[in-house]
């Protein structure tokens, strides 16, 4: 994807999710997100990156860009295990211990979609800079 001119940022996914949260939080904050909507985006990115650590052998990276309407963050993996239906994950309820990451991303962000290309798959998260949600 050509993200030139849209203030792109790139971070590799490592075990240090705290570091990633601070990088993404700083970036989205500079782009104009604040408060709960900023925290929600950061948590959603954390969930997607944790899934890469758990299910995609930790092989992935995060790409972010923004314009005057949206902050967009893509969490890429190199195994390509995600399919578009994953974006519609349902609430597992409190009876299931795990597997709520993708569902939670949908609660936290304005848009969640799955994209695929020849290098793998990715979760794309978008948070509007101004629109009121709910």
């Amino acid at each position: 994807m050509d993200v030139s001119g849209r203030n792109p940022a790139y971070w590799p996914i490592t075990d240090d999710l705290g570091g990633l949260r601070r990088q993404v939080g700083g970036y989205a904050g500079d782009a104009g997100l604040a408060g709960v909507r900023l925290q929600d985006l950061v948590l959603a990115v954390n969930e997607a990156a944790a899934n890469v650590l758990d299910h995609a052998e930790g092989q992935g990276h995060v790409l972010a860009w923004h314009d005057d309407r949206y902050v967009t963050v893509e969490i890429h993996d190199r195994l390509g295990l995600l399919v578009p239906a994953h974006a519609n994950a349902s609430d597992p309820g409190v009876g299931r211990l795990r597997g709520r990451g993708l569902w939670l991303m949908g609660q936290l962000c304005d848009e969640v979609s799955i994209i695929r290309d020849d290098r793998g798959s990715a979760v794309r998260l978008r948070q509007a800079l101004t629109a009121a949600r709910e």
Binding site: L17, G18, R21, L43, N46, E47, A50, V94, R96, L97, R98, R100, G101, L104
Partner: peptide, 16 residues
């Protein structure tokens, strides 16, 4: 200061 779904899983496991 922060809790993600991994933390939630641990709390639900403790409850069980």
């Amino acid at each position: 200061t922060f809790c993600d779904s991994t933390g939630i899983s641990v709390f639900l496991g403790a409850r069980r």
